[in-house]
């Protein structure tokens, strides 16, 4: 701060705490003790030069935005090239910027650019992230920002990879929750009898019930919206574990048949035979010399 002239310092001290607010030039004038336009211009120039102020265009007019002191300190030590790269990365905000775009915008030589990025990364000013949409691209953003959902791909992704374990755990938990509410408790005395709710029963869990339960259950710290839960329920339906009831508003588990027997064709060796297409009565593979039959018949 000490490097600033008194006027410039006064302006920065008065307004610099708000980094979001935009100021037009005449809005800064009251902070100049002499109310002198020339003095203001000199001060603005000084602030701009030192990196405390940034110009933005709003419509046709130029407006100014103050930069925090940390950031100023950060950029101060950078070489001009690095500062340029830093600025472009910063302007991309939470979306991140692709290295190729960066090169086109800055017009720097590839080796220079690489060197700049490396320095910035080692200083922990920027970081490279992976995008779900373009997994092969190198995308940079400021160190302290979190990427947007478009980049991360939503709750199902961890490090731009679909988190299968997380999804499966949720699927199992939700299935259990719905199953517990789909069938009545066994009545005492009639053991072994399969009991179901009567037709028109309305107590099956709805989407919002399930979402609420997931929220309250501490299953995950990730915020899951109803749409996310719905996607999970869809998958469970496609897995044949749940079904929609009451006009599609609620969900019910499908009873698992205990000790279910396999299908005729898949239990016999032919249904699972890897060389089924080659099997021919007169061919080298046939029913008489089939090893799978041999094994299967021995399993009695």
């Amino acid at each position: 701060m000490s490097d600033l002239q008194p006027v410039a310092r006064k302006i920065y001290d008065s307004c610099g705490h708000d980094h979001q607010k935009l100021y037009a030039a005449n809005e800064l004038l009251p902070f100049v003790p002499s109310r002198d336009q020339h003095e203001l211009v000199a001060a603005i120039n000084e602030l701009l030069g030192r990196g405390y102020l940034r110009t933005l265009k709003q419509g046709d007019a130029y407006v100014y935005k103050f930069v925090s002191k940390d950031e100023v300190d950060r950029t101060r030590n950078l070489t001009p090239d690095e500062a340029l790269v830093y600025q472009h990365i910063e302007s991309a905000a939470r979306e991140g910027i692709w290295s190729k775009t960066l090169k086109a915008r800055t017009n720097l030589h590839p080796t220079v650019l690489t060197r700049c990025l490396k320095t910035l990364e080692t200083h922990r000013y920027i970081k490279s992230i992976k995008s779900v949409k373009f997994p092969t691209r190198k995308i940079y953003m400021l160190w302290d920002l979190t990427p947007t959902i478009e980049v991360t791909g939503g709750p199902w992704f961890t490090d731009a990879e679909l988190d299968a374990d997380f999804i499966n755990a949720l699927l199992v938990a939700i299935e259990r929750f719905v199953t517990a509410r789909s069938f009545p408790k066994q009545k005492p005395g009639v053991a072994g009898m399969v009991v179901v709710f009567e037709a028109g029963y309305t107590g099956y869990p709805t989407l919002s019930d399930i979402t609420q339960w997931v929220k309250n259950s501490n299953l995950t710290e990730v915020e899951l919206s109803e749409a996310d839960i719905k996607a999970l329920l869809e998958v469970l339906i496609y897995d044949g574990k749940l079904e929609r009831v009451i006009g599609g508003t609620a969900y019910k588990a499908i009873r698992k048949v205990e000790g279910a027997v396999k299908q005729g064709v898949t239990e016999a060796p032919c249904g699972r035979c890897p060389v089924f297409d080659l099997c021919n009565e007169d061919g080298p593979i046939n029913a008489a010399n089939c090893v799978y039959f041999e094994k299967w018949l021995a399993e009695i």
């Binding site: 032919c270 249904g271 046939n286 029913a287 089939c290 018949l297």
Partner: peptide, 17 residues
């Protein structure tokens, strides 16, 4: 088509046995 083939094979296997 697969079913028919599988059935033929089962019958042929019975013959073989």
């Amino acid at each position: 088509n697969d079913f028919y083939k599988a059935m033929s094979r089962i019958l042929q296997r019975i013959d073989h046995e």
